[in-house]
Lab assay of single mutants.
Amino acid sequence: SDEEKKVRDQAKRLGVNTEQLLKWARRQGDEDLVRIVERLLRS
């Protein structure tokens, strides 16, 4: 999905993997991002 591509691009920009991005999203309190990243991790 578009959202998932955006998440992957953001992880690349930050230089982190998906698990690290999830931690980062939780720290930001970004519920939408957390949900998308969790979906990516499960897929």
Rank of each mutant, 00 (worst) to 15 (best):
E4M: 12
E4C: 15
L22N: 00
R26P: 02
E3D: 13
R8K: 05
D32H: 10
D9Q: 08
T18I: 15
K6A: 07
L14N: 02
K5H: 05
V37K: 00
Q28G: 01
D9E: 11
E31L: 14
K12A: 07
G29Y: 14
E19C: 15
V37E: 00
G15E: 03
Q20H: 06
S43R: 10
L22R: 02
R39W: 11
E4K: 10
V7D: 06
E31R: 07
D32V: 12
E38W: 02
G29E: 02
D32C: 14
V16M: 14
D30I: 15
E38Q: 03
D9P: 06
G15F: 11
K6D: 06
L33Q: 00
G29R: 05
E19G: 03
V34S: 02
K6W: 13
Q20Y: 08
R39Y: 06
K6L: 11
Q10C: 15
I36M: 10
N17T: 14
E31Y: 12
L14Y: 03
R26S: 07
G15Y: 07
G15V: 11
V16E: 02
T18A: 13
V37H: 00
Q20P: 01
Q10E: 09
L41M: 04
L21R: 00
R35N: 04
R39F: 07
V34E: 02
K23T: 04
D2C: 15
R39S: 05
K6R: 09
Q10L: 15
L21N: 00
D30T: 10
L33P: 00
L40A: 02
E19P: 01
D32W: 14
A11S: 04
V34N: 01
T18P: 12
T18K: 08
Q10K: 07
R39D: 08
R8Q: 04
Q28W: 14
E19N: 06
K6F: 11
E4L: 12
K23N: 14
R39I: 10
N17W: 15
V34H: 01
I36A: 09
L14E: 02
Q20A: 12
Q10H: 09
W24S: 11
W24Y: 03
I36R: 05
S1D: 10
R27S: 15
V7H: 06
S43H: 12
S1A: 10
K12M: 07
R8D: 05
E38Y: 02
S43Q: 12
K5V: 05
R26Q: 13
V37D: 00
A11T: 04
D9M: 10
R39G: 05
V16Q: 03
L41V: 04
G29D: 02
V37Q: 00
R26M: 10
R27H: 12
V34Y: 05
I36H: 02
A25V: 07
Q10F: 14
G29I: 14
L14S: 03
E19D: 09
L41R: 01
K5N: 07
Q28A: 07
L21P: 00
A11I: 13
A11P: 05
Q20T: 08
E19H: 10
W24Q: 12
L14R: 03
R35M: 04
R13F: 04
T18L: 15
R13I: 08
D30G: 13
Q28V: 10
V34K: 01
K5T: 05
E31H: 09
W24M: 05
K5W: 05
R13T: 03
S43N: 11
E3Q: 09
E38K: 08
L21F: 07
L22Q: 01
V16I: 13
L33I: 03
D32G: 05
V16H: 08
A25I: 13
L41S: 01
T18V: 15
G15A: 05
